[in-house]
Amino acid sequence: MTARAPAPHPVITFIVRRLIATVFLLIVVSMITFAIFFLLPRLAGQTTRGLASQYIGRNPTPAAVHAIEQQLGLDAPLPVQYGRFLRGIVLGEHFNAGTSKAYCPPPCFGYSFKNQQPVWPMMVSGLPVTISLAAGAAILWLVGGVAIGVISALRRGTLFDRFSMGVALAGVSLPIFFTGLIALELFSYKWPIFPNVQFVPFTQNPLLWARNLVLPWIVLAFLYAALYARLTRAGMLETMSEDYIRTARAKGLPERTVIFKHGLRAALTPIVTIFGMDIGLLLGGAILTEVTFSLHGLGLFTVEAIQNQDLPEILGVTLLAAFFIVIANLVVDVLYAVVDPRVRR
């Protein structure tokens, strides 16, 4: 340590550095997404005219297709198109598709000519559903998975351990849509404990919101809880055989303190990383859950965009999904830096 001017707090430096890296990562990710979406179809023999017709309704007139092609500059070099897309996110964009004129306000993630709407507000309207689904499931699986993993590790070899690990193995081997359909069939139709699974906004009726989401939460959480139980158990077994645990016991700490303060804390560190990544990637699981339960969130929006071959919507939602992951990773890194001083380098 040299006696220089007072340096900013190391956590702040770390956060600033990570922020810069994140912006960079976002740009790279969006560039690759953009390139794949525009380059790969072209390599696959798709013409710009064919692309333009994907932007527009089902039976477009050649003139309208040509107008779109011109308007969107689909024949322009890729970097130009990418630059235009970025400008749209910041400044918004005016579209002029033959007969119809449209303004897409910032953040403009494209304009769906098929739905005659900018993509961003459509995605935003799906967000509450997906966030409700994700948040409930995440809490459920984190608490459930870690608790089962800890108990299994501490009671290794017992009936509880064998049973819960068996269920966990089944859990990671079952497709979400299969468990979802069975849950729906049993608990919604046969024994209508949770009938009419549909989304009710939290602000409108919190009780109904929760009741209608119980099945999707459990189905989505089951897969991850199984994974986390296995990971936590392995981590706990590893840490509990460390020397410092023996030391902690030897110096007479109560077993509770040894387990929670010394054992679990160390075992949880990798779980936090994985949790961050899983939250970011959750849109994948949300797609299957939302389709299975017909919940109109971002996942179902994605699938409908694909079915309609609506390119701006597909591109927009893919970018949004990638942004989620990058942001989730950033949050985890920052949390890490706050919790664990060794990371701030």
Binding site: L25, V28, V29, I32, T33, I36, F37, L40, P41, L43, A44, G45, Q46, G50, Q54, M277, G280, L281, L283, G284, I287, L288, T302, V303, A305, I306, Q309, L311, I314, L315, V317, T318, A321, A322, F324, I325, V326, N329
Partner: peptide, 24 residues
Amino acid sequence: DVFLAFPLLVFAIALVGVIPSSAF
């Protein structure tokens, strides 16, 4: 890191959507 930042499922279904029915 960049590759791990891609939402695989979203990406896969999106890509199938934009590739024409015969290619390569």
